[in-house]
Design a protein around this nucleic acid. Sequence first.
DNA 1: CAGGATCCAGTGGGATACTG
DNA 2: CAGTATCCCACTGGATCCTG
Lengths: 126, 126
Amino acid sequence: MKTADAPPVDVFDATSASRAALELVANKWALLIVPALRDGPLRNNELLRRIGGISQKMLTQTLRDLERNGLVLRTDRRSVPPHVEYALSDVGRPLSEAFVAVGCWAEAHHRDLADARKAFDARNRG
Amino acid sequence: MKTADAPPVDVFDATSASRAALELVANKWALLIVPALRDGPLRNNELLRRIGGISQKMLTQTLRDLERNGLVLRTDRRSVPPHVEYALSDVGRPLSEAFVAVGCWAEAHHRDLADARKAFDARNRG
DNA sequence: CAGGATCCAGTGGGATACTG
DNA sequence: CAGTATCCCACTGGATCCTG
């Protein structure tokens, strides 16, 4: 044992189901939507406002994909005006924990990245 | 406090540096390459073999991007035949931990996803 | 071995307009 | 409010060939 217990291996196989699962969530919108739902269900408009830069199209599209694969539960209150809530399922929740960690990493290191980029670009000019 | 201590918020701002950092790593190849390097440095060909389905082009391109932003360190042994090694930096390593967790989630739940998909597709036909 | 260069099909994703 | 539908372009990324 090195650091964690069970290292993933199957995801490295391009034809495996676990690789397909990984590719499903390996995009920036999923990486933002899933953590956004961690503190409780949110409505369409709430997600639109919380996640800066996302379009209605991509929100719906990603949400549908996540719902189809059972990561997100969609609840239609069937009222007027419409009221639809999106919540994490028991399958989606553990993923949100991992994604929150990614978000924290970004918050913690974005300055390091900027510095490295400047150094790299300077090196590759002189 | 709910589950973790510091929830990321800045990543939700489309213009923030942390969002840019997140978008840098929010793609499937980064999500595979970074964890692949967790057990020690690897060479170009070793990565090509380990990560099924990746092309030489995407490997080089993603590696360059990660190197430029300081997540990956490139070491050229300057020998004949060529010998180049890629390793995680101190900035990249914590990210690899989070990404390994994502991989583990995929390994653990890919069957759930397949089941949910079947149910969803059946529901949306009848 | 490690890669750069080029060509090109596929698609991710924005803008806009419409609906129940 | 919570979507759907259409147009359309920029970029992703594979295939192929070439180099030190």
